[in-house]
């Protein structure tokens, strides 16, 4: 059975932008190991030549014409944000020039 190590939890939580406490990391590694263990029941199933299903609708080409529809005004766009400045959303600087 694959074990989810605490290191894996750390790497993945970084990818998922989640900050975890030491305690959470340990607990999650344990819980997730048991769930992944369960999921590995599919490991030996033969899926050769079987297509992947990403959606269960048969329709294709559901597109819109290139027509402008009304947008928010600035106030509506910003009203749920806790941090705004002169009509912009304001965030602490993360990485410059990227």
């Amino acid at each position: 059975m694959t074990k989810i190590s605490t290191d894996t939890v750390k790497v993945i939580s970084k990818l998922a932008k989640l900050k975890l406490t030491e305690e959470q990391i340990n607990k999650f590694a344990l819980d997730l190991s048991s769930i992944v263990g369960q999921m590995e029941e599919i490991k030996n199933l033969d899926v050769k030549n079987i297509a992947e299903t990403a959606r269960v609708i048969d329709e294709e080409n559901i597109l819109r014409e290139d027509i402008i529809t009304p947008s928010f005004n600035q106030e509506q766009a910003l009203k749920n944000s806790k941090s705004i400045h002169n009509g912009y959303f304001l965030v602490p600087q993360i990485l410059k020039d990227d």
């Binding site: 400045h85 002169n86 912009y88 959303f89 965030v91 602490p92 600087q93």
Partner: peptide, 12 residues
Amino acid sequence: KIAGRDVSLIDF
């Protein structure tokens, strides 16, 4: 830099 703080402003 706003009020001495490095920030980023976002326009969508």
